[in-house]
Amino acid sequence: MPHRDLNQDDDLADFSHREISALGQPKTVYVSGSGPAVVIMAEMPGISPHVARFARWVRDAGFTVYMPSLFGRDGAVPSADEGAAVFRRTCTSMEFRALGGGAASPVTSWLRALARIALDECGGSGVGAIGMCFTGNFALSMMLDQATIAPVLCQPSLPLDNPAGIEISAEEISTIRQRLDRENLDVLAYRFEGDHFCKAERFAAYRKALGEHFIERVLPDSAAGQDVPPFFEKHVRSPHSVVTVHLIDEQGQPTLAARDEIIAFLKGKLKTK
């Protein structure tokens, strides 16, 4: 993959810019690659160059990436203030449930429909789903539909007001647990030890709800990169983004190993070589 400056806006020119209508609601989705489908949902404040880099890694490993535009300016490196404004708008949007927990964000219904479209287009045994930060738990909620079989939760941060909360109803997570047991599926999850937005209490709640199917990875804070964009420098003061902003792209680094483990997980579940 060619080197790109992560401090400059990314035009996403190597992705098809598609308008995909699901449940009667059109959204821009960036699609690239071939092979089984993987839906990648961006972290706050949007599809940044770091998120796009991760999507390209997944694509180049043999997958078709579907990256929906859910908030923010696509491909941008926003200022700290612009990123904060995106955060505030998203928190008050009808599509998202940032506070309170106990129920999934409404946008997850659209994402499940996108997964069905992706499965129809790409074929295979199922779809992978990777959520990050604000969208972290969306990958789990997508398992309410049979299309998604390989969910990855990177630093799931909702609900913001309850460190031990899970952004899903008790009935929904019970349904997912039954599916995990029945189909012998797993949920892969990552966080940094000192993350202020995804704390140990949240992973404990997932562990209690999902049992042995919840495969958790907790990275030391020392594994996080320090060269971060303005929004993170001002508003995200702890190690947070395992496979994007805080990833160190050097062999032997725990964050790069996490990226490789995610790709191996997808290959194993989606049965690629």
Rank of each mutant, 00 (worst) to 15 (best):
D5R: 12
L12W: 05
H17Y: 00
E19D: 05
I20D: 05
S21L: 01
S21E: 10
L23I: 01
L23A: 08
S32E: 11
G35T: 06
V39D: 04
M41I: 14
M41V: 14
E43L: 02
M44F: 02
M44A: 15
G46C: 11
F54P: 01
A61D: 10
F63S: 03
F63K: 01
T64S: 11
S69R: 13
G75A: 10
G75Y: 05
F87K: 10
F87V: 10
R97E: 14
R97P: 08
G100S: 13
S105C: 13
W110N: 13
W110I: 12
A113T: 07
L114T: 01
R116Y: 02
I117G: 02
L119G: 01
L119V: 01
G126T: 02
C133Q: 09
F134A: 13
F134M: 14
F134P: 04
L140Y: 06
M142D: 03
M142F: 02
P151F: 06
V152D: 04
L153H: 03
C154F: 04
P159A: 12
G165F: 10
G165E: 11
A170M: 08
E171A: 12
R179P: 00
D181K: 05
D181G: 03
R182M: 00
A189W: 00
Y190V: 02
Y190F: 15
R191N: 06
H196E: 13
H196L: 12
F197N: 09
F197Y: 13
C198F: 08
A200Y: 00
A205N: 04
R207H: 08
K208R: 11
F214L: 08
I215Y: 02
D221N: 15
S222E: 15
D227R: 14
R237L: 14
S238M: 10
S241C: 15
S241R: 07
L247C: 15
D249H: 09
Q251L: 12
A258I: 05
A258D: 04
A258V: 07
D260F: 04
A264D: 10
F265C: 03
L266A: 05
K269I: 03
L270S: 02
L270D: 00
